[in-house]
Write a protein that binds this DNA or RNA. Structure first.
Length: 345
DNA sequence: AATCTCCTCAACCGCTACGCA
DNA sequence: ATGCGTAGCGGTTGAGGAGAT
């Protein structure tokens, strides 16, 4: 677990990059790929540490980066994924093509977080303040909430760990198959983290549509999540289409998780929220409707949901049962593996 | 015009995960 | 099993710009 001493070296430049430095880095990577970041600065003639070079590249110089204002759709996705994943910016970034985790993180901290706070929504829990307040008045309710949160978090971590394991296994299998079938074939673009591959493909080299792309930029959250859901994830079929069906489906599923919160914001804010809940049918619809229905009733005491939520009228038993069903439904969907799928409540 | 305050975001820091010897 | 080197991640910082006074 040793720490890289590269940044501690004296004489290395820090701070903002000059256009000349950018040019050097860009030229070097286009020519040779980044290879080892540690040795790159010296080879490229830069007085920077490798870490600084890597960050500059991944956050700014990479050709597949989209800059400028976030679209309404992107904002929605960030909010919704944040509700599901928390501050896991890299995971969120995999669902926002051409956006970096750093950019998303900054945008969240400077814009979205404040906007949610302004709307009375806790940016951490993504719950409305009213709910927090009302739940705090009843001790048992509060305890139930905490318990459910802890259980959900535990289940989430467990599922993530399992997904990682499965992804790794599948990736290994796939890699072996590829090796057996055709060793010279261009590697398929999997949605698994592949840290070992650091060779860069130059534009117009090999496959015509290939571009310089960081390993992390090829990682998409969708497939990892789709596999346990049992949704086909044929990478080779879909890799030429970023908006493939599977990705869209899981995005729909993910995006629905906090639609209730966003719906609330809609009442007060502008049209950045307007497109929420406009998902269409398909496989994701079941998950979508489940989450919309349940999460709305579960978390928000406003609007049309008030009738279904029955704020203040529901017994603690119903509240508990609702939460139980809500979490179990999600867990059942996320966890399709019969061996380790455990009902939590 | 000068100063102050706030905001944004590129970059840095410190930590962890992972691969390899 | 252990230690080291490296890459990646998330939190934080601070320079510079924009707006307010």
């Amino acid at each position: 677990m040793g720490r890289s001493p590269c940044c501690d070296k004296a004489g290395l430049k820090k701070g903002p990059w000059t256009p000349e430095e950018d040019q050097k880095l860009l030229a070097y990577i286009e020519e040779h790929g980044h290879g080892s970041w540690r040795s790159l600065p010296e080879k490229a003639g830069l007085q920077r540490c490798g870490k600084s070079c890597r960050l500059r590249w991944t956050n700014y110089l990479r050709p597949d980066i989209k800059r400028g204002k976030f679209t309404v759709q992107e904002e929605q996705t960030i909010i919704q994924l944040h509700a599901l994943l928390g501050n896991r910016w890299s995971a969120i970034a995999t669902h926002l093509p051409k956006r970096t985790d750093n950019e998303i993180k900054n945008y969240w901290n400077t814009h979205l977080k404040k906007r949610l706070i302004k709307m009375g929504i806790d940016p951490v829990t993504h719950k409305h303040k009213n709910e927090t307040l009302s739940s705090s008045t009843g001790q048992s309710k509060n305890a139930a909430t905490l318990s459910h949160m802890a259980q959900w978090e535990s289940a989430r971590l467990e599922a993530e760990a399992r997904l990682a394991r499965e992804s790794k296994l599948l990736h290994l299998q796939h890699y072996q198959n590829n090796n057996n079938l055709n060793k010279s074939a261009a590697p398929q673009q999997h949605c698994f983290t592949q840290k070992t591959s650091t060779n860069w493909t130059k534009p117009n080299q090999g496959n015509g549509d290939q571009q310089l792309e960081s390993p992390t930029s090829t990682v998409t959250f969708s497939e990892n999540l789709l596999m346990p859901l049992g949704i086909p994830t044929d990478s080779s079929r879909n890799r030429n289409n970023n908006n493939n069906e599977s990705s869209a489906m899981i995005e729909l599923a993910v995006s629905s998780s906090t639609s209730s919160d966003v719906s609330l914001v809609k009442e007060h804010e502008h049209d950045w929220i307007r497109q929420i809940n406009c998902g269409s049918g398909g496989i994701g619809e079941g998950f979508t409707s489940l989450l919309i229905g349940d999460s709305v009733g579960r978390s928000l005491p406003t609007g049309k949901n008030e009738a279904t939520a029955g704020v203040g009228n529901e017994s603690e038993y119903n509240y508990y049962e609702d939460n139980k069903n809500y979490w179990n439904s999600i867990l059942n969907l996320v966890d399709s593996s019969p061996s380790d799928s455990a009902t939590m409540f």
